[in-house]
Design a binder for these strands. Sequence first.
DNA 1: TCGTAATCGAGACGGTACGTCATGTCTTGTT
DNA 2: AACAAGACATGACGTACCGTCTCGATTACGA
Lengths: 199, 199, 199, 199
Amino acid sequence: MSEARPRRGRPRDTDVDQRVLAAARETIETHGYAGLSVDAVAERAGVAKTTVYRRWPGKAWLVADLTSRLQEEAGLEVTGDIRADLARHTVKIAAGLVAVGPALVADLTAAMANDPEFGATMRARWARRRQLAVEALDQAVRRGEVDPGLDPATVVDQLVGPLYYRLLFTDDPLTPEYAERLVDSVLGPPPHPEGPSHP
Amino acid sequence: MSEARPRRGRPRDTDVDQRVLAAARETIETHGYAGLSVDAVAERAGVAKTTVYRRWPGKAWLVADLTSRLQEEAGLEVTGDIRADLARHTVKIAAGLVAVGPALVADLTAAMANDPEFGATMRARWARRRQLAVEALDQAVRRGEVDPGLDPATVVDQLVGPLYYRLLFTDDPLTPEYAERLVDSVLGPPPHPEGPSHP
Amino acid sequence: MSEARPRRGRPRDTDVDQRVLAAARETIETHGYAGLSVDAVAERAGVAKTTVYRRWPGKAWLVADLTSRLQEEAGLEVTGDIRADLARHTVKIAAGLVAVGPALVADLTAAMANDPEFGATMRARWARRRQLAVEALDQAVRRGEVDPGLDPATVVDQLVGPLYYRLLFTDDPLTPEYAERLVDSVLGPPPHPEGPSHP
Amino acid sequence: MSEARPRRGRPRDTDVDQRVLAAARETIETHGYAGLSVDAVAERAGVAKTTVYRRWPGKAWLVADLTSRLQEEAGLEVTGDIRADLARHTVKIAAGLVAVGPALVADLTAAMANDPEFGATMRARWARRRQLAVEALDQAVRRGEVDPGLDPATVVDQLVGPLYYRLLFTDDPLTPEYAERLVDSVLGPPPHPEGPSHP
DNA sequence: TCGTAATCGAGACGGTACGTCATGTCTTGTT
DNA sequence: AACAAGACATGACGTACCGTCTCGATTACGA
């Protein structure tokens, strides 16, 4: 990736990325998302607009970068207990979405729909995460850990889709409990040590 | 509902709405969603821009109106067979979303997030539809038609949420089959009283 | 002028003119001249915009009407003492201009320049007043009352022109003293009973 | 005066000013003053509207700039013969006003009355010119070159005021002869040291 | 007394321009 | 090269007037 690069000329100021991203976050906090213009961010970061565009191809990419740092990495941990794994995963994603907030997500969505290249990139990024969850679930199905009638891809959509839906299209809060309820809803109620649902 | 108003002043030209909406639809079809400016729509409709703004507070409201007409009215029909009712409903919503297309949906989403008033209005509009489905499912639960462990609101989210999710965030197509699969996935496989498909 | 007119139909509401003009004056006082729109005036007068346009061909004509009522009729009184007559006349015009104010005058000026018909009408209206002054002065010249080298038309312009000039283009106030000074300046200093300027 | 500025950022395209002003002049010539919109000028100049607004705060300022270039610089030349100096000056101003035309002048006047800041700026600009003439005349008075009873400021108003008055409020033409007649009218007929025209 | 004609209130409508905002590119001089 | 500064093209936004129009509801006069 970083092949010896001869790197002629003045080297890049290393903390510019941080300053810009911080400025973006602060701008959103103080002036709301609507006030997030590249000009404003650059000025707040004490950086020229040119410098911003040298690092990110456009506003959408900058925002995408910002959001991916706001979310903790929602990598799926596979422990063998698929229900718990999915629950943790779903809760993490929900938390990430809440941290980022509806405005950012919505704007990125619009950018994805209007800029094909950006859309493809973002979709690919998320596809990987989704694929991991699907595979884990698929293996659990094969292991007989969950109802064999379930389609793994559909189930995963039914875990993640409602998160975005709630965030963007309803007034209801996106809580960890909600995320867990989603898991129970598709996988069926969890078995209890004492007194299972089907005695 | 409010047909009793005294009707003062010059009445609105009845087909202006139609002309504007038609012009908007045509503009999107020919120039893509990105080319949809209020100026362009007004000109194409043979109408003054001010006339457009008299009827719709802004571009977003016009587009929202347009989309709600592009979707067939996804009113939930209650027949007593909740599974079939929900399936039909979900398929309809999916078809509506496909008809409207990701770009429109995404942009409206962004508008909702940036204009609080618009967001509130749209959310309220959809909340009604959602409420109907929740209530129908709730009654089916009480009737014992479906698993009593299911939370109606969560289930409905798991039917509708994935539709938006697929449309906006994945490359996978949004088909009627997918919509039906969602129903089966949360409600469990359909019972086969008289002869299953593969006996 | 008012030839027997059959006067069919509903007669005009007699005090509408007054109400509209009053509303115009009030609007200027409270919202400044910039806020003087026909809509605003009509609303304030409790009158429909149509009604305004039925009486005045356009905004400029309304404003012209308003100004002519703000100025007291500056008809030239001829007493035989041309210097005193012109002084009184000039002072009256100055007072009228001050009462009307620069904004109104300026806007009427612009309207005159942009609407030929309106311009012609207004010019004709003032031409009469000007002609009277010129004739009075001309007779005084013939009577030997003033310097025979003076051109009456030029002198009158040098009395009235500076009034508009001061009002519109300088910061200096338009006082009665200034108006009188103008007369002295062109006609030479007034003769004194005891001790003339050239003993 | 301020040529010492560090010159940061991309320098302004030097001929943009020229192109815009030329476009404005041409637009007025072809489409009349009424057709002078900032949009039209910008397009004709091959320049973005924003670029116009970067240089001139608004339409009025642009037009004002244009007019000041249409008038040849009416700086007062002081030769010692005050009568000739003032005559030349007055003729120049008259010529400038004619070149600019009543419509422009009238509209600028209206702009001055409606936008206080613009008005103040324009008044200040002209005040300098006026002050110069007043001072020159004042010195001539002290030198005994003209009637000591004359008030310099009043006289200057009586030279310039009638020019505007004729241009804007009468149908009479604004000729050089008229301008010269104004001078004779206030200063008295010119002395004929060596042989008058009609002895 | 009843119809006819004009007035009035209300507000829709076409038209035109305004000034603003944000994106992303480009052009300087400076480090 | 990277960087700061800022000019520039582009394109849309929403607003404000103007003057015209189309309704329904009045209000007189004349047949």
